[in-house]
Design a protein around this nucleic acid. Structure first.
Length: 270
DNA sequence: TAGGCCATCTGGTCCT
DNA sequence: AGGACCAGATGGCCTA
């Protein structure tokens, strides 16, 4: 290779390297944006790339499942769905963000919860207990955590310090935990997310009635997955929902229109 | 010190 | 030809 050709190669390589750097920076910027919209954003303890993607996937899935079922989940089921497949530190972070009592976070350590059968008429979250974090059994992990205050979980509820669901989580929400960072994430809330569409909270009694998410204990398996993805597809078709025009989609099926109506009944003023 | 995570470089492939 | 994308290699940093 002549000296001139070598020089041209070097220049080309430098330009390619610069482009690749910029490309990766763009990718990282997008990932940082994602970190800020998934639950448990913390400046002090940043989620890794892979954990951010996993958490985002779980978050989307859990929200979609909520939309599909048309029923508000209980907090623990929701968090356990969020934590599926996450590493122990990230699982601990999620627990810390929600200020959950880890003893109630693990199903096998909640004697007052049915350990094998979800209540009748409930929506199962199959396979969402496959990960059992040993760190959680010993108590809350050390700070720093991200934050998801109970007041943010149910922040849209009028006239309630923590929202109408708070009584349901007695013994779950930790009131005297370590000092947390100021809240950074958007509200982690089935109810909060819906209420952000509607700007109106559901009455406490309605939450009571619609609280029907449950957990499917026993390690999942193929049957459990069939339960998740059965009924015509993996995607709960949340895009079909028309919530204040944020998520419109043409081509509603009859079932989707019914679901839409059901969700409207649940999450809109009644 | 090992392992995890990350940024960067590099060469290959595909597309315009 | 040049750019975008991808995956492997490498070295640095941090933490348990």
């Amino acid at each position: 290779m002549t000296k001139a050709r070598m020089q041209r190669f070097k220049v080309r390589r430098m330009k390619a390297n610069a482009r690749e750097r910029n490309r990766m920076h763009g990718l990282n910027d997008a990932l940082e944006s994602l970190r800020k919209v998934v639950p448990c954003y913390s400046k002090t303890q940043k989620l890794s790339k892979i954990e951010t993607l996993r958490l985002a996937k779980n978050y989307i899935w859990a929200l979609g499942e909520t939309l599909r079922s048309g029923k508000a989940p209980d907090l623990m089921s929701f968090v356990q769905a969020l934590c599926k497949g996450l590493s122990q530190p990230t699982t601990n972070l999620v627990a810390g963000c929600l200020q959950l009592n880890p003893r109630t976070f693990l199903p096998e350590q909640t004697p007052d919860m049915p350990a094998h059968l979800p209540p009748a008429g409930t929506v199962a979250y199959p396979g969402h207990f496959s990960y059992q974090s040993p760190g959680l059994t010993a108590g809350l992990p050390s700070p720093p955590y991200g934050t998801m205050e109970p007041s943010h979980i149910f922040h849209q509820v009028k006239g309630q310090p923590y929202g109408p669901l708070e009584p349901f989580f007695d013994g779950v929400l930790v009131s005297d935990g370590p000092a947390f960072d100021p809240p950074l994430s958007p509200p982690l809330s089935i109810n909060g997310n819906f209420s952000s569409f509607k700007h109106e909270a559901v009455a406490a009694s309605d939450y009571d009635k619609s609280f029907s998410f449950s957990v499917h204990y026993g390690g999942g398996g193929t049957g459990g997955h069939a339960a998740i993805y059965g009924g015509g597809g993996a995607n709960p078709r949340c895009s079909e929902l028309q919530v204040d025009g944020l998520m419109g989609f043409d081509g509603h099926t009859h079932h989707e229109r019914l679901m839409n109506a059901q969700l409207n009944a649940i999450f809109h003023d009644s």
